[in-house]
C-alpha cells in the first residue's frame, strides 16, 4: 500500500516510516502544510496519516481540500488533541479514523490496514498469511480448508497480529486494542495470555504452523521465521 505521513515531528515520522516500510509498502512524508498539499494534489495514496497541528496550517483544512477535490484517499488523523469536538469534527469532515497521541505503532498499522482494506473493498477483504485466510467481513477464519471457530476477541487479536506480521507487538498495545484505551486497566496484562493461548491452540488444531511466539515476556510476534 502507498502511504503519506504528514507530521512535523522528525523523530515521530521516522519511526512511523521505519515501521511501515517493507512488505511492498511505499511510504512518503511531508513535514508542513505546503508540501503536504502539493503531494496530495499530485499523487493518490491508499492512506494519509494526518497530524492536525502543523506549523504552517490547520490539518483539518487539508482534509477539507482533499474531500472537495473528490479524492478517494483514506485519511487517519493522528492528533495530540484529545478533545471530543476535534474528533467529531475530523470524522464529520470525512476522516476514516482518529488516533490520539501517544499511540502504539502496532495500533497505527492495524488501523491503517483496516482503512486500506475498506477502501479496496472489491473482493480484497480477505487477509492471507501462508495457509491462514481471514475474511474480515464474514468474520471467518480458515486454515487451509478447515474452518476455525474463534471468539470475537480471538478473531480481533488474529487480525491485529496479521496487520503487524513480523513485528513484535506488546501486551500493552494488545490490551488497549481489545479493550480500548479509556479503560483504566491494571498494569498486569496477564489476562491477555488466556486469549493468546486459546488462539494458538485453535490455529494449531486447524493444522497451521506455530507462527506465534512470545518475546521476552513483553509481547508476541507473528511470523513464519
Amino acid at each position: 500500500m502507498k502511504i503519506l505521513v504528514i507530521e512535523d515531528e522528525p523523530a515521530l515520522y521516522e519511526s512511523i516510516l521505519d515501521y511501515f516500510t517493507g512488505e511492498g509498502n511505499i511510504c512518503e512524508h511531508a513535514v508542513n502544510f505546503a508540501s503536504a498539499s502539493e503531494k496530495i494534489s499530485l499523487y493518490n495514496y491508499d492512506c494519509i496519516l494526518l497530524d492536525l497541528g502543523l506549523p504552517d496550517g490547520e490539518g483539518l483544512e487539508l482534509l477539507t481540500n482533499l474531500k472537495n477535490s473528490k479524492k478517494k484517499d483514506g485519511v487517519l488523523i493522528i492528533s495530540a488533541r484529545h478533545s471530543l469536538d476535534d474528533r467529531l469534527a475530523g470524522l464529520d469532515l470525512g476522516a476514516d479514523d482518529y488516533l490520539v497521541k501517544p499511540f502504539h505503532l502496532s495500533e497505527l498499522k492495524a488501523r491503517v490496514s483496516a482503512i486500506v482494506r475498506r477502501k479496496n473493498f472489491d473482493g480484497n477483504n480477505i487477509i492471507t498469511f501462508n495457509d491462514i485466510n481471514v475474511d474480515v467481513v464474514a468474520m471467518k477464519t480458515t486454515v487451509g480448508k478447515t474452518e476455525v471457530g474463534l471468539t470475537k476477541k480471538e478473531f480481533d487479536l488474529l487480525v491485529y497480529f496479521l496487520s503487524n506480521r513480523n513485528k513484535v507487538v506488546t501486551k500493552n498495545a494488545m490490551a488497549e486494542h481489545l479493550w480500548g484505551d479509556e479503560m483504566d486497566l491494571s498494569d498486569d496484562f496477564d489476562f491477555i495470555y488466556t486469549h493468546v493461548k486459546n488462539l494458538k491452540k485453535k490455529l494449531s488444531e486447524g493444522g497451521a504452523k506455530d507462527y506465534l511466539r512470545s518475546v521476552y515476556g513483553i509481547g508476541y510476534k507473528f511470523s513464519d521465521q
Binding site: 523523530a11 515521530l12 497521541k101 499511540f103 513484535v168
Partner: peptide, 21 residues
Amino acid sequence: ASHEMMTPLAVINSKLDSLLQ
C-alpha cells in the same frame, strides 16, 4: 499543553516500538 506533552511521549513510545523490532 496536551499537544506539547503528548508529542514527546508519542516519540518515546514509537521509539520503544521501533527498538523492540
